[in-house]
Design a protein around this nucleic acid. Sequence first.
DNA 1: TTATTAAGTCAAATGTCTTGACTTATTACT
DNA 2: AGTAATAAGTCAAGACATTTGACTTAATAA
Lengths: 401, 401
Amino acid sequence: MNDVRPIRAKSGTNHEGTSAHNRRVMIDALRINGALSRADLARATRLTKQTVSNIIEELERDGLVSSQEAVRKGRGQPSTPYRLVPEGAFAIGLQIDRHVTRAVAVDLVGSVLVRAEAGLPTGGPSTGATVILDLVAGVRSKLAGIVRQSEKRLVGLGVAMPGPFGIDGSGDDPWMMGAWQKFPLLETLTAGTGLDVGLQNDAAAAATAERMVGAAHGLDHAVCLFVGYGIGAGLILNGELYRGSNGNAGEIGMALLFAAGKSTPLEHRASLASLYQHLSADPADPVLHARIDDLASRRDPSIEAWIRTAAADLRWSIHLIETIFDPQTVILCGSAPEGLVNRLIAAIGPLLPSIAERRGRTLPRLQPGMADPWSVALGAAAGPISRAFDPHFAAILKDSR
Amino acid sequence: MNDVRPIRAKSGTNHEGTSAHNRRVMIDALRINGALSRADLARATRLTKQTVSNIIEELERDGLVSSQEAVRKGRGQPSTPYRLVPEGAFAIGLQIDRHVTRAVAVDLVGSVLVRAEAGLPTGGPSTGATVILDLVAGVRSKLAGIVRQSEKRLVGLGVAMPGPFGIDGSGDDPWMMGAWQKFPLLETLTAGTGLDVGLQNDAAAAATAERMVGAAHGLDHAVCLFVGYGIGAGLILNGELYRGSNGNAGEIGMALLFAAGKSTPLEHRASLASLYQHLSADPADPVLHARIDDLASRRDPSIEAWIRTAAADLRWSIHLIETIFDPQTVILCGSAPEGLVNRLIAAIGPLLPSIAERRGRTLPRLQPGMADPWSVALGAAAGPISRAFDPHFAAILKDSR
DNA sequence: TTATTAAGTCAAATGTCTTGACTTATTACT
DNA sequence: AGTAATAAGTCAAGACATTTGACTTAATAA
């Protein structure tokens, strides 16, 4: 009877949106350029000196920026640069992987202050949830021990885990963490911590980390090719992480390769999982990481064959990414051992000819990113920081939903 | 001596940005939902009734919206719906293809009012430019004959041509329009028309058209797989066309397929160009379009073999697109004859299993889009309309550059 | 006939940015 | 040295778009 056809529209905006955006723009400018004076900020953001002064004053009151000593640089009154205050905000990052869970506490500029790691019990999510909540609580209290008032400045809890999300894991696919997919993780964590909780897949988290403190810092178009237990791409498009309609954008592990007449998911050929299988290694082995690092650095024959095929697949993937996304650069990162990533990068070259080969490039087509087991957890924490402080369209609009 | 390190930052915003955004949001809401009352708009945009009233009044003064007769729908004062006025704005769209040029005049709601077509002389861009400028001038004056004051409401000229852009065409690649790449087309058109000129590749234009009046209408995440002389993907991400760092995003024609031991660009296997080659047909043949339409509809054996391989490649492409972008839907469109597109869609099914197979889908994974030789020109014209009236981040910021 | 509900208007208030004049501090020039 | 030029930053008033809350209008339900 009622015409309940929902009306779909974007939200409008108002003064608050304006001011929120301008605050974010200031923080972003300081993050990208380092310390800047009010006059610099005014020129860069095209706002007036007065507006910048007001906002900087407010940010300083809020403990997010602080002044450094004045610098003389020619004629005119010396300028007072302002910088981001690392202790201005914190976030907790949580990585849930197949065999381990890691939690970190990160500050506004992306420094990791606390780390903690735990094995995940085999009992599945319901028992695992307790371990995770304890881990987070531990990190949180350690942070509180280091920084007074950290709790008040905690902007959220970011979670990273292997995707894809929202798929009815057929259960028999060992490459998916089926049980975790069904578990109401976000609700449990929200209830258990009282924090704002956000979720990303691990490649997206790695890209978020690269954007805050790594090779994608300040870039608007970059793709992070993430080699971990699985393989994925974290997409920085127009300066923001792109999630797709269900948060699964970039999950290229399932992209199909046609080789030798049959199709194989990329993930089965170029990922740590496939390497473990190639080496008949136990993924749960605690010294496996170091062992592979060693094998790779020594160019052990047992690993070189895998590197060759994986590198060929990655070379193709990079070409595809360049062709589809037209990014400023591609970043190869991973939770793989650094020695392995280095070998892969060496083995990938030379890259295939692509539209990325243009004159006037300032960035290399392929760059190494972080190869650190903690980078995903860092990226997970970078998520809430970015949501809270980076400029983006949604932040201007009146509360959606 | 001077520290000329440029400071990079996003622009700030102010009242004008706020109000510009809110205007755009109104127009967008009316475009997506059809006529709406002020009260409806206020609820949908989360602005106050008063604000909506002010903006609608202004839009009505500007001739962009007009009221319809009041409707009674239950208790309370009847509401007065407002709708977009088609004659509120116009844009010219120009498609430059290998063998023809098409120009159209389009109104605010995406109706094509004038069409014109011309062959391109073989003399290359410098002589071609004259033909093009004449074509545009002709369309423009025809439009002026139909609608008084159309010139005042012309928001720009959109150009669509095969990409990729900014590449030093090696010249010997018959798939690229090398000479046109080097020609200062935008400058020539700007000078010759006095209009704002924008450039897209043809797949992007097709996607822009689908978003304004086609299958992607109102969608925030959709990919248009465009089969024309070449093949490309138009990317609608977060409700906007994604261009990449150099305007070449989606140019998947160069994506490499590995089959039978060697790598082939997708474009060489699934595109009209490849079909022409398969049929040993002359691309410049004026009745070719109709002949292929006929062959395809009759399922002529001469074309079925090509359809099978092309469909297999497209099936794989769709799987890849779903895997990488996680869109709400994939739209198959093209400047190919409708009969051919229909055969392709039929031959593509069933789709490969992918993360797009989720319960609760409301849209089909694959939908047919426009298969109309004029759709690219329409999309080209839709570009300036969208830039002028659709809500997007950049429109809020203070003049960039 | 009256109460209720909803659309839309009016006028004043609010919040944020802008404007233009002014102060302060330094270097460059004579 | 002394003065002019330059640039950073502040002050106070003004401009502008949205918000607020009361009010008017017009319909249906009881």
